[in-house]
Design a protein around this nucleic acid. Structure first.
Lengths: 207, 207
DNA sequence: TAGATTGTTAATCGATTAACAATC
DNA sequence: TAGATTGTTAATCGATTAACAATC
């Protein structure tokens, strides 16, 4: 699509643009200025972000809302289904299993794994918990493309290695470590400890 | 402490430095170069980050590990306890209630709220679920400083308004919206939808 | 003292935004 | 055509990093 490197910070902004578009009815077109008002981002930034992926706008009119929505869906890859595997069915894992938000965007958790014998074989949200030793084979058989890691810190790196070896190229990691992965793999860390420490810093300062 | 404005990106890096320090034994001192190796950050950046808060190092020796750990704990505000209130005791909320990581860092969830009559009055992880109508009063009575919001998107802004009105100055929001708050309040959004869309983007491109 | 490493300045890099010619 | 808004260039801003004098 484009030759210039796309800064990765652009991607979440596209998601926000899309959300704003969902709520903007009443007109067929929207200008970068209007979208800026709705999202809080700068209008020039919005135009620039979009041109990384093509020329979607019409001078003097703006962007056709329906078209732009489709374009963004397509860019983000949320116009199709993705197979997700969940590793670790503790409290957090169970919450993620039942999180409707994933399925709504086409991310379907089709397999779940744990090493706790009391959990293996149980069915949660229609997904049977498998022994973690079956991870590698199942990933291949079911064409799992995204891994969600919700295991304790101590086990996370090994789980991630196994996922990658089995062919997973995108991982959402909730364990509070920074796993080592090759740059062929997209790894996103959601680290609650780090976030609450940010809050504490602010509270300590803010008075 | 310092007059220059501290870029907020520095704060999570401090958390990572601290984690690395926890694991570095064998010597009393550590150089910025060694810490850089351990964390993957640049040594100059580490030194610069630290000098926002003071001059902790000794030329030719490095940083005294124990001292630096204490300093960072103090800067982050994790050397003390914080009272946390959780709003929304669904799957995610329950997972957060039982997440040991919070308590380990001094963040204690002392109250939980929901509007579901079937949940109100129940005890989870030693915390009784209260009616959300009691939120405001309980926040004041128990001196709740941090709010965690794990309610559906539709309810989030109102819950956040109530928290702020009652005196909460730091909020961790899991609802997939960007709430409007005054700049007196620190708001961190953890938005799973946005994150999985980042993964999908990568998968779509990466081949 | 000589050697090592800090704290800090200055250069570099990359992202944001203002400005405007091109275009509908 | 005149007016509006895009796409894009150039200026600005802020964060990262290399370099080095100061210091133990």
């Amino acid at each position: 699509m484009s030759r210039k490197k796309i800064p990765s910070i652009v991607i979440p902004r596209l998601s926000f643009y899309y959300r704003a578009l969902l709520e903007s009815r009443g007109s067929d077109f929207i200008s970068s200025e209007e979208l800026a008002k709705l999202t809080g981002f700068n209008a020039a930034q919005i135009r620039k972000d979009l041109t990384y992926f093509g020329q979607f706008g019409i001078p003097s009119k703006g962007y056709k809302i329906e078209d732009l929505k489709q374009k963004i869906l397509n860019i983000l890859g949320t116009d199709r289904k993705w197979n997700v595997g969940l590793v670790g069915v503790g409290n957090l894992g169970s919450a993620l299993l039942s999180y409707r938000g994933f399925a709504k965007q086409g991310f379907e958790i089709i397999s779940a794994f744990d090493n706790d014998l009391r959990k293996i074989g149980k069915k949660l949200e229609g997904v049977e918990v498998q022994d973690i030793s079956e991870l590698s084979q199942t990933v291949k058989e079911k064409n799992i493309q995204i891994g969600i890691v919700a295991v304790p810190a101590i086990a996370a790196q090994e789980v991630i290695n196994t996922l990658i070896k089995a062919g997973v190229r995108a991982i959402l990691n909730f364990a509070p470590i920074r796993p080592q992965v090759s740059n062929k793999v997209e790894l996103l860390n959601i680290d609650l400890s780090i976030e609450v420490e940010r809050l504490a810093f602010f509270l300590r300062r803010g008075r």
